[in-house]
Design a binder for these strands. Sequence first.
DNA 1: GTCTATAAGCAGATAGAC
DNA 2: GTCTATCTGCTTATAGAC
Lengths: 190, 190
Amino acid sequence: MPAALLTRNEMLDRLMALFRAKGFDGASLADISDSTGLGKSSLYHHFPGGKEEIATEVLAHLERGLEAAMFAPMRSDEPPARKFDRMLEAIDRFYEGGRRACLLERLSASVDANRFKRPLGRAFRAWIDAVEALGVEAGVPRALARARAEDLVVRVEGALVVSSGTGDTRVFARTIRDLRARGLGDAGRH
Amino acid sequence: MPAALLTRNEMLDRLMALFRAKGFDGASLADISDSTGLGKSSLYHHFPGGKEEIATEVLAHLERGLEAAMFAPMRSDEPPARKFDRMLEAIDRFYEGGRRACLLERLSASVDANRFKRPLGRAFRAWIDAVEALGVEAGVPRALARARAEDLVVRVEGALVVSSGTGDTRVFARTIRDLRARGLGDAGRH
DNA sequence: GTCTATAAGCAGATAGAC
DNA sequence: GTCTATCTGCTTATAGAC
């Protein structure tokens, strides 16, 4: 394992992949060492707060990634319907069609989830807010847009759980398809 | 801790509560010992296979519980719409309005989830199958009833994740309300 | 069928050389 | 900024008395 060949961003990418795969309780310092190529002592040089600080930094890294990959494009001047499709594509890509887990869910389910409570709540709300804003932009009344946005996030998270639990990613694919079919403008139903 | 004061069912109830609260990776043998009142050696007397066997037995216990509390009532001769409402009430009660986690999700997210893959898939499918059967009974075409049933389970699981992650159980309450409002007979949309 | 005692190993974390 | 060596405590699991 070559040392210091990774930028901090690359390190955080790998650590995010690790926590998504194994969860916070399941990922050991040895795993973290392996996935970054850094010895334990080096890890404590970069993250004096240990495993908990690593997870916090990974969470912040995810928040920045969401901003760049999902939220920023949604502030472009494309039509809302197209931006909505782009967001669903980004989601499908990020979760690799339901094969990869959600970091937020994995950290929410860890034993000391209270430690991550604030950033977790913030990340979930940022996501819901962004979808809500898109609905409002498309002319959907705010209350309905809010409910729809919550529902979208709920369904994506649930589809990941059920896909993983049944070992059948078609549930995830169908969920994304349904969300795309419903779209934004269909104000009469949810 | 009084010994042998618990029946096996009571023991499994407590162990299920423990795994729902802490997950498989997060629950230690010391936790298991505390929650049952049995010393470690006694645990190995009841469950020679150790922690993994305990989780497997808890999963089987859940499957029996689902059968008794959710699936059996759905085979009564009440109108399907009423049975559907009863099921949603049972779900709301079991998850305490979104405050308690799903055992299936917690075990799906554990490091050695592969060990539980079969019973997990079986439990998820049993649940989806039961909801699908209810839709068919209500006259919904099978393919649509299937999609709806998957969607119901997806939304319940997702609502638990989002409620836990945001610390706001209103998401769960609204999800149950929406599912009840949609009901079974509304064949034109999902 | 429960207990006490203990094993063997891994967890997260630190000291201090280079 | 990385390493080797080490620490302490907790992990799962077992032996054997009662």
